[in-house]
Amino acid sequence: MQSRSSSPVAATPDQLAAVDAAISSLASQRGACLEIMHAIQDQLGFVPHEAIQRIADALNLSRADVHGVLTYYHDFREQPPGSHVLKVCRAESCQAMGSDKLEDHIAERHGAAMGETSQDGELTVEPVYCLGNCALSPAVQLDGKVHGRVSADRLDGLLQKCKNNGGNS
């Protein structure tokens, strides 16, 4: 998705340990590249730059191959996201129920335009193309949980609730 041009921050030892753990648990599976990246991102919220070389070594691929996979798929982030990740469906069904207005509302009220993170680092907003909740559009996914028939008011309530809870809900 929005791969940012700023140079990557060096991964911490804990992050590198998570990378190595994901690699060692999955590398024996055939074609494990995506699985490893998912496992790393589940742990860290993103795939650190250092993972590329390590995955390449473990799977006997070139760094270019691994970089290619990492940057091809919309899911994978190369930078850490905000404390909360809001995926807003942009597909036709949700458009038919006003998802574009919801996007505008999020940018205005919560300070994060599509593909960006709010100044305070609280909220990252990402596009998603269909959550399979099309009978209850518009739909969003907040920190992994799907919500349907999301009005601006309902969204404000959901975001307020997860800020009150703090951290990753």
Binding site: R30, H38, L59, Y73
Partner: peptide
């Protein structure tokens, strides 16, 4: 991993292969 075109059968096979 969020790619629509991977619903196309040959793209899906590539993706399955990692």
């Amino acid at each position: 991993a969020g790619s629509y075109v991977c619903g196309e059968e040959t793209a899906m096979l590539e993706s399955l292969e990692g």
